[in-house]
């Protein structure tokens, strides 16, 4: 309960905070893993409820699409601009700008940034919803009728999140690329023909992008649901759960990003050249 919002004992030392963060991370990963395993179990053995999954796909996907695409559009312009300005300090020509940008988008930026947006938008939503149900004892009511909340509530969100993160990544990545293209034209007078160049995108880039989508898409709903389900207490508990969900899912995205990028480069780095 160190992040219950209102209880504060300001004598905690900085090192203590770091140490406690470490202990809590371990504990969270452990019990979130339990939720993950149960979700997988119910995927195979649980109820079949396409309606609930479809509703969550709408909730998670369609309603995030505008938000994620808008943000990625802006990001596309900024990155092309910053990258172009910096490249001009070293290289005389920008002919590789479009190709490099596309490579980066496919390999990392599109899935990772879309996932960070989703961690905020959907992670907070899941935790607020499940957390409210937890403190108003709706979850206990579910359990009393012999229904595991993981089957009823987590599984549909899990499936929906994985599917919709692929969709969001593809759509918002395309938006980012299109906006980058316009930016390149405006700032550096690059023709769209030379900007659109997929020669640098190889199967390893595509593969690591897709693996990232899958990993983020699975981690966000599990960690957020875990935060929501473990909410206990009054109104401060729901707020604390929502906070935890956003922090844990965003950190998970960043950590997975590093792990997958590092792994892909270490294993297939030679190929990629």
């Amino acid at each position: 309960m160190s992040d219950a919002p209102v209880v504060e004992h300001p004598r905690k030392r900085v090192l203590g905070a770091l140490g406690q963060a470490g202990i809590e991370t371990t504990r969270t990963v452990g019990s979130a893993y339990g939720v993950f395993v149960r979700t997988l179990y119910y995927l195979v053995r649980g109820r079949h409820e396409p309606g609930a999954i479809a509703r969550q796909m709408y909730e998670i996907g369609n309603r995030s699409l505008v938000f994620v695409s808008l943000v990625m559009g802006f990001v596309g312009v900024i990155l092309v601009y910053q990258g172009g300005v910096q490249t001009q300090r070293v290289l005389p020509d920008l002919s590789q700008l479009g190709a490099t940008f596309l490579e980066l988008l496919v390999r990392d930026l599109a899935p990772s940034l879309a996932a960070l947006m989703l961690a905020t938008r959907v992670g907070a939503g899941i935790a607020a919803e499940l957390g409210s149900m937890a403190v108003t004892e709706q979850l206990d009511a579910l359990r009393l009728s012999a229904a595991d909340p993981v089957d009823y509530l987590v599984k549909p969100r899990f499936v929906a999140s994985i599917v919709m993160l692929f969709v969001l990544t593809i759509v918002s990545g395309t938006v980012a690329y299109a906006c980058g293209l316009v930016g390149a034209r405006v700032f550096f007078d690059l023709s769209p023909r030379s900007f659109v160049d997929s020669s640098l995108v190889d199967p390893v880039d595509l593969g690591s992008g897709l693996v990232k989508c899958l990993a983020y898409g699975a981690a966000i709903p599990i960690l957020s649901a875990h935060a929501g389900l473990s909410a206990k207490g009054g109104s401060d508990a729901v707020g604390a759960a929502t906070t935890r969900a956003v922090v844990h899912s965003s950190l998970a995205v960043i950590a997975l990003d590093f792990a997958i990028s590092f792994g892909a480069h270490a294993l297939f780095g030679g190929y990629s050249r």
Binding site: R121, G125, S132, S235, G239, T243
Partner: peptide, 18 residues
């Protein structure tokens, strides 16, 4: 009440990120 606090946090992080 409690659900309201959750909704507020949710809205705040989304608006902050955007």
């Amino acid at each position: 009440g409690a659900p309201g606090v959750g909704r507020s946090v949710n809205a705040a992080v989304v608006v902050s990120a955007a």
